[in-house]
Amino acid sequence: MSAPSKTDSAKRPVRLLRNLNAKIASIPMVATALVVFIGCTTWTVVHSFTSSKLLPKLDFVGWEQYDRLWGTRRWLVSIENLAWYGVCSMVLTLLIGFILAALLDRKVRFENTFRTILLYPFALSFIVTGLVWQWILNPDFGVQQVVRDWGWESFTFDPLYNPDIVIFGILIAGIWQGSGLIMVIMLAGLRGIDEDIWKAARVDGIPTWKTYVVVIIPMMRPVFVTALVLIASGIVKVYDLVVAQTSGGPGIASEVPAKYVYDKMFASQNLAQGFAASTMMLVSVIIILIPWAYLEFGGKKRG
């Protein structure tokens, strides 16, 4: 490409017209993004301030839907559950995924077999995962019964039937399903680390675990970021796992925000209430996302 003249600014090609073909080609995509992401989101937020029932209509009622939302016990329980589920699943999935990847990376035999086995749960849908774990955790024919049949009569393990810990029963299934994928991503990251770094660390006599913590993990930062985004998006939308395992029970002990949105919009025929709840979900995502995006992308350009 011929370099534009640096002295004559009038002859510099107009920025807008550079790569014109590519820009034209991306118009449909840009339009879709604008309509779907910006348009539909705005529509939803606007309607969350109305009194829409089964059908959307524009009679504004101010903050009424939000007042009601934050005065509803079920919503508060949902938020609390999501917080527990989110924090635990974020930490545990990363931890388990990384440890499994590190173990596989130690050049074990049958690595392919292990990798397939560990990744397999990810191939199952959440509904199937949920049902499988519902059976495993069922006190009458799951883990509890098996251990009792071994002779430990007083053994109790029924997380799905205990309102205090039911969310952890769901967490188990979530981690079982998700950590395989994180492992594969981590493994790819580990494979991307130059052999020479390992050699250098060995020459310097640094213990293996310390090499991981001090050298390898900081080098794998982009991989961790990818993994975090994947896990986080899974957390906010958790719905089918709960429906398959407990339907929000016992009582309302395992309700989650996405389920609240669905139930209000379709079962209770109260669109505005559902919209208000989904707007709150969006707001919470944005609150987390913006500082992170700023740190991740904004900082680099300036630096």
């Binding site: 509803t72 016992p250 009582g251 002990a253 109260n270």
Partner: peptide
């Protein structure tokens, strides 16, 4: 009805 259901399901189970 949905609000009452939410209340009842909580009440019956807790």
């Amino acid at each position: 009805q949905g609000q009452i259901e939410d209340l009842m399901v909580e009440f019956w189970n807790d």
